[in-house]
């Protein structure tokens, strides 16, 4: 039997590190988004410079999320990257295909509520999660 070097799990630990980093950036982004959304109502008066500051902070942390996500994708192996690419392609398609009619229906008052961007974000998050699970199951 040819001996392999002891298992170092280099790939797994590298991916785990990038996932933790991505989660931290996402947590920070959620916190700055909450600050931006609720700060003007509960923490300071509307229209003050603090709101602009909160928006700027949210954008900067958002860029951090994008870079952390890119770093995470770079760390994945080719199969995992393919699963992610498929999931992102499905998510983008669903966002466009569902988003445009939803917006049109809201404009013509066919649906009884405002077409808030949050609905689209929820649909995109769920689609990405389900597509990822399907991809993982398909190549398990």
């Amino acid at each position: 039997m040819d001996e392999l070097k002891p298992i170092e799990h280099v790939y797994q630990s590298r991916v785990r590190t990038s996932v933790i980093r991505l989660f931290r950036w996402c947590g920070a982004w959620a916190a700055t988004t909450a600050l931006m959304a609720f700060g003007p109502r509960f923490l300071w008066s509307r229209g003050s410079g603090f709101t602009l500051l909160a928006v700027g902070l949210d954008v900067v942390v958002g860029i951090g999320v994008i870079l952390a996500n890119k770093h995470y994708l770079d760390e994945l192996d080719e199969l995992q990257r393919k699963v992610q690419l498929n999931a992102m392609a499905i998510t983008l398609g669903v966002a466009v295909i569902a988003g445009v009619p939803f917006s049109v229906m809201a404009a013509y008052h066919i649906i009884p509520f405002h077409a808030d961007i949050m609905y689209l974000l929820i649909v995109m998050s769920l689609t990405l999660a389900v597509s990822n699970l399907y991809g993982t199951w398909r190549y398990r």
Binding site: L4, I7, Q80
Partner: peptide
Amino acid sequence: ERDWTQAQLADALDVSRQT
């Protein structure tokens, strides 16, 4: 033939076991 597990081969090739 070499009596390696999928996990060992995955580590040696720097990919996941799933791959």
